[in-house]
Amino acid sequence: MIIHNQEQLLKIVNQVYDLERKTAAKEEFAGLQRNIGRIRDAFSEMGLHWASPEGEPYNDTRTDCEASIAGESSENLYISEVLKPIVWIKDGGLQYIIQKAVVIAESQT
């Protein structure tokens, strides 16, 4: 799949991700989930998909994230907040990252 205006598309993806995040947290927005899901599916048909690594362990081998480390310790980190998701593109059977997640990592201890 050939994607034009990748930068603009990523801006939209980041907004959709933000909507997913905000509506998931609040019950009154449950009705919007279906529409947001459809936007995600449409992107998926274009070969774009994304995931939030929130809650996953974080260490210096994770080149799928750009992290800011909050708090005092840098050991035993987990991803406490995801500002932008990891975005992949599928191109002829290959999959590669076109946006690293922007995350905040914190020590679990």
Partner: peptide, 11 residues
């Protein structure tokens, strides 16, 4: 060791 999608690098 690196992951082919660019998401892991052992250093």
């Amino acid at each position: 060791i690196t992951r082919d999608d660019g998401g892991f690098d052992s250093g």
